[in-house]
Amino acid sequence: MSNSAMLEQGDFEALSEFRYQLRRFLKFSEDAAQSVGLTPLHYLVLLHIKGFPGQDWATVGQLAERLQIRHHGAVSLVSRCEQAGLVTRTPGRQDRRQVLVRLTPLGETQLRHLAELHRNELRSLSKVFKVARISAFNDSEGTA
């Protein structure tokens, strides 16, 4: 018997609700970025630089991985962010081929504003995601 035969209506409803709420959040994020003159990808670049664990910069390769895009696409995106005054690029100290991307004060200001909006939106969705998570991960045996 395949796993799909074990799915019940509630499973489909939970998955549907999760995808709906996820899409609502992404639409909110796109609109919020555009409201301050950034593209959604610019916002994500800023977020991934600031949010990269253990450092206050990110390499172009790290950004490509986080954004799930090709390296040359990340280079182009970073160039656009640099032209907008949001980031700076510097060669790595140990490996000069490596490019370190850092936020400028403008990038930091834009990111903090948008991150606050996103945090508030996530808080408003937290109850929805808790309900979806509980529904989707409870099985008939009571294990999660």
Rank of each mutant, 00 (worst) to 15 (best):
M1W: 03
S2M: 08
N3K: 14
S4K: 14
M6F: 06
Q9E: 12
D11E: 07
F12Q: 06
A14E: 05
L15W: 04
L15Y: 05
S16Y: 02
E17H: 02
Y20Q: 14
L22M: 14
R23N: 15
R24C: 12
L26R: 15
F28R: 08
E30I: 14
E30K: 15
Q34D: 04
S35G: 06
S35A: 12
V36Q: 10
V36F: 06
L38I: 03
P40A: 01
L46I: 02
I49H: 01
K50H: 09
G51N: 11
G51L: 03
P53H: 06
G54W: 00
D56Q: 07
D56C: 00
W57S: 12
W57I: 02
W57C: 11
A58I: 01
G61S: 06
G61L: 04
G61D: 03
L63C: 05
L67K: 05
Q68G: 03
Q68P: 00
I69K: 08
I69P: 01
I69M: 13
R70N: 08
R70W: 02
H71A: 05
G73P: 00
L77A: 13
V78Y: 03
V78R: 08
C81S: 11
G85N: 07
G85P: 10
T88L: 13
T90M: 12
P91N: 04
G92M: 02
R93F: 13
Q94W: 09
Q94L: 12
R96S: 08
R96I: 02
R96V: 06
Q98I: 12
L100A: 11
V101M: 03
R102F: 01
R102N: 11
T104W: 04
P105M: 00
L106A: 06
L106R: 12
Q110P: 00
E116N: 07
L117D: 07
H118W: 05
R119G: 01
E121M: 09
R123P: 05
S124N: 13
L125E: 00
F129I: 04
K130I: 09
V131Y: 00
V131A: 15
A132V: 14
A132R: 07
A132L: 01
S135C: 10
N138I: 08
S140D: 12
G142Y: 00
T143I: 02
A144D: 09
